[in-house]
Amino acid sequence: MAVLDNIGYRALTEESACEYVKSLKLFLPDEKMTVEEIGDGNLNYVYRITSNHKSVIIKQALPYAKVVGESWPLTLKRAKLEAEVLKKHGEFVPHLLPAVLASDEELALTVMEDLSHLTIVRDGLIQGDHYPNLSAHIGEYLAKTLFSTSDFALHPFEKKKLVAKFSNPELCKITEDLVFTDPFFDVETNDFEAELAEVVQQLWTNDKLKLEVAKIKYAFLTEAESLLHGDLHTGSIFASKSETKVIDPEFGFYGPIGFDVGQYIAHLIFQVLVRNENDRIVILQQIEEVWDVFSQYFSEAWQNSVVNPFTKVPGALESFLAKVFKDAIGVVGCELIRRTIGLSHVKDLDGIEDSSIRLYVKKATIQLGSSLIINRKNIVTISQLLKELEAYTS
């Protein structure tokens, strides 16, 4: 259970949200404003406040998970942490994050740039839209934020201060349970169609698979490599044909680099599994591009590092990138499974109207996830990953 930290907290209404931004002098005193609650996530209220001249977003944390209710309390401190992650990551890629205009720890809210001119990537992809710069931008975001907050870029004292500052035990526990534990056991929070019961039972009795998941979870628990976004899926990214903005890093903490990389790739794979052949090619190219761009930027930063002498050892870069890739493949497998049979699903799969097709795709998703987890040591290049996907899309 989360520690109660809501003394002085009050949930904003549409009226009080307007008053709050007025108090910040973000709008003129007599300026006419409109407000609407636009949040569709599991943990927060999101208000959009507009006038004839400007608009802003207020994101306020709830003291519980909306997806479950008040029986699942959550710390409000996550709002401050989210704002701090946005600011820290913004030091390295300001063009890929919303500007933070204000934050209030007591009210557990952040006021930020309005991105309503962009589309949530998951929604756009489901509608068949393409974002030609998406994976290049995300590859850059991943490489620059993850390298720049790692031991390869920071003095050990500075790195360890950041690890302490971005400790996020309550939200990490959600990931530990919902991504790496519950889907692999018969627990009440799991949610899947009765027709999937046989394949799910096979999953739960597969000790070889569960042993590998245990290893992946242990890395998540213990490897404080870089400041992660912590929840980098296609619902946490706004984009257009030319612009990309990463949002919602409230799950941010110091963890293994491969986690962020794997989460993003996993949510592109959902689209690979549901798209027609022509559209599928575009998504596969996006998967390939994000790893290639990430590797390129990360390698450039590595070569320029003057903090860690081991960056100059021949083979060290290749060894570390291989480790990140293996970690990412394991996370991909876990994310595919948990979004199919766990508590929190994705519209990519659940939105398939034909039940026979939906069940077929979900079975394929579970089987693919299991295969990636077990065989991740043998999948060492992005082209091998794409080859692995072919067996599940024919």
Rank of each mutant, 00 (worst) to 15 (best):
Glu14Gln: 13
Glu15Phe: 13
Ala17Ser: 15
Cys18Arg: 07
Glu19Gly: 12
Val21Ser: 07
Ser23Met: 07
Leu26Ser: 03
Pro29Thr: 11
Glu31Trp: 09
Glu31Gln: 11
Lys32Thr: 14
Val35Tyr: 10
Glu37Leu: 09
Ile38Thr: 03
Gly39Ser: 04
Gly41Val: 01
Leu43Lys: 04
Asn44Arg: 11
Tyr45Cys: 08
Tyr47Ile: 01
Tyr47Pro: 05
Tyr47Gly: 04
Ile49Glu: 02
Thr50Leu: 09
Ser51Lys: 14
Ser51Asp: 13
Ser51Val: 14
Ile57Cys: 01
Ile58Leu: 07
Glu70Ile: 13
Ser71Ala: 14
Pro73His: 14
Leu76Ile: 08
Lys77Ala: 14
Lys77Leu: 08
Arg78Gly: 08
Lys80Gly: 11
Leu81Gly: 00
Glu82Lys: 04
Glu82Ile: 13
Val85Asn: 08
Lys87Val: 12
His89Ala: 05
His89Arg: 02
Phe92Pro: 03
Val93Phe: 05
Pro94Arg: 09
His95Asp: 15
His95Glu: 15
Ala99Gln: 14
Val100Ile: 13
Ala102Ser: 14
Ala102Leu: 02
Ser103Asp: 10
Leu109Arg: 04
Val111Arg: 00
Val111Cys: 01
Met112Arg: 02
Leu115Cys: 12
Leu118Gly: 07
Thr119Pro: 07
Arg122Asp: 09
Arg122Phe: 04
Asp129Val: 02
Asp129Phe: 09
His130Arg: 13
Asn133Phe: 07
Leu134Ile: 05
Ser135Val: 07
Gly139Trp: 12
